[in-house]
Design a protein around this nucleic acid. Structure first.
Lengths: 335, 335
DNA sequence: CTTGATTTCTACAACGTTGTAAGCAACGTT
DNA sequence: AACGTTGCTTACAACGTTGTAGAAATCAAG
């Protein structure tokens, strides 16, 4: 049932290497030899054994994408784009789910890394530059917040600027008590820190006070936490008139809590998110958000990785900014 | 930087095979030999070359999960569970995105199948039993609707019964003009056919007429299509007082369209979905739905596949039903 | 025809691993 | 002292592929 080059070679009456040459599109093969070999390949339904090829070539043709959680829509959408972009370059993508913990991420970074894949696109939450330091030269591209990422290429949007812009948008609507949901004090919370910094910067730009009481923490950025945080903000003596959530799932949870509290969005409280996930286009109301260009991020990451794998592995790390824009919808603008 | 068994062997002063034995946990190795070898492994940061191991063993330790689209939340959630269940058995999961087209699915089924993976968990949309017929014995487990799946194991819930139950729930609320969204006339639409059959059966059970005009098609079951279908149903001479959407994303689109039309859910129109995705717990209103036990489905699929890989490949195909239940929320019950 | 260049093909060795078979100690039993 | 048994280790060959080097066939030009 399973055939090898040798079987094809015997059937076509040529050497094993000639079959290999045909399979790999080597030019100097006589047309009728090629035809005979191709016929034999078809008859036997031959397919190359990738393990053997990889062993010989030192390449696997597989790259991995490691993300914290697949059922966070942002990562699922990103994964789709990475798979598409990689396929165009002939790579298969192995998707790995780290869970987001530091230890798990370290295991992925050091373990998967070896021999099974040619390179890794990594979107870490918890990992620090130090954790990545000891790895032996597997090409790797980092996604996400701009932190200190050591010798690795990086693709990401300017989190501070984006957060600043969308906060400025809320201020521009005349809102003055703007809450933030999603702050994190842990070392994992690099994104949170940057987005909070943008939020603070926008306040400073407008001459508004930064009110610590309006900043609600959320350890994991899920819908449930957004709802909980929103409820606690609503119990403040003076309730906020807008809220900037550090991602869209938090914002969807906040919308839910506002609905339960009988408040109108955006009339009573305007809501903005971050990530531009599909859900936000169909929520009630639709969600204003920062829209990173995911397709572009995926493409850049794959290309950077391809360059590392095929090219100079010792070149200095590159830092590619990805574009984003504000997607303003009902949750701040009204119907 | 990259070391082989041989390097470790030289450093520890033993043979290559002894190192291999240590790595693989073979029992008959003297404690101090083992210690020397382990020390050498640690010093060199040795990791086995999986391609070579696979070539030798004929196993790769990788299974694939092929789903139509990763950013359909149902599949993302399913993927997470499959990854978790597979990890417990020591397998890595390669996630493949087929796009759902018949030709693409055929490529995945026949291509990926060879040599790179030990087995495949496949959730096909378009593929027919005929397409799967010619494959050479790679262990495969099918997920999804119960159709004719040839010689392959299958895990899935009873779509007809589930659709019948949730439709009966709508009828039980006193609704009499119950629309359906998501019918498909194409051969791909196996799920659609089964869910429509359940919808029709519930009507028959209750002595209600089946009204063709209340059945709206949706080729791809995305939010946008749910919204479009809902709008067209609302333009009927007598508008429906309930709608059963064949999955949750359609239902979320329908909720959106109802909101835009100024109708109240469930007061004016009750809405039910299918899949129990996370979004439905936080939508406004929260979504009543059929909740398949995804964790169980994933676990059963992985176990079936493991049995095929390690065990008898010629055993008759098994058909495992997965549990489900109704998750009744605001969109049919009110706040 | 001879020569040299080019095209076409082949034999061989390697990639890093593990199964097999067999060797060598060390031990207890007769 | 000879024997088998058991524990531990090793040499060798294979898994299926491709790079290298070179042989054989073909061709162009003198």
């Amino acid at each position: 049932m399973r055939h090898r080059l040798k079987d094809v070679a015997e059937r076509a009456g040529v050497s094993v290497k000639t079959v290999s040459n045909v399979v790999n599109g080597y030019v100097h093969v006589k047309p009728d030899t090629r035809a005979r070999v191709e016929e034999a390949i078809a008859e036997l339904n031959y397919r190359p054994n990738l393990s053997a090829r990889n062993l010989r070539k030192g390449r696997t043709g597989v790259i991995a994408l490691a993300v914290p959680e697949l059922d966070i829509p942002y990562f699922a959408e990103l994964a789709r784009h990475v798979v598409t972009a990689a396929a165009e370059l002939g790579w298969t993508v192995l998707i790995d789910q780290t869970g987001g913990g530091r230890e798990q991420e370290r295991v992925v970074a050091s373990g998967i890394t070896e021999h099974l894949i040619d390179g890794l696109i990594f979107s870490p939450l918890a990992l620090t530059a130090g954790d990545l330091a000891g790895l032996d030269g597997t090409p790797m591209v980092l996604l996400g917040e701009r932190v200190d990422h050591g010798p690795y290429d990086h693709v990401g949007i300017d989190n501070v600027a984006a957060a600043r812009e969308i906060t400025a948008h809320l201020i521009g609507l005349g809102r003055r008590r703007i809450a933030a949901i999603g702050s994190q004090r842990t070392p994992e919370g690099a994104s949170a820190r940057l987005r909070l910094a943008g939020y603070a910067a926008a306040h400073a730009d407008a001459g508004l006070d930064f009110d610590e009481a309006l900043v609600a923490p959320a350890p994991a950025w899920h819908r449930a936490e957004g709802a909980v945080a929103m409820r606690s903000l609503l119990s403040l003596p003076v309730r906020p008139d807008a809220v900037f959530c550090f991602n869209d799932t938090l914002a969807l949870g906040a919308l839910r809590a506002l609905h339960e509290a009988g408040l109108r969005v955006p009339d009573d409280v305007a809501v903005a998110g971050f990530d531009d996930i599909e859900d936000g286009r169909y929520s009630v109301p639709t969600l204003s958000t920062v829209a990173p260009d995911k397709e572009r991020i995926a493409r850049l990451a794959v290309e950077l990785l391809a360059n590392r794998i095929d090219g100079d592995r010792t070149a200095p790390p590159r830092e590619l900014p990805a574009p984003y824009h504000l997607e303003l919808r009902e949750s701040t603008q009204g119907p």
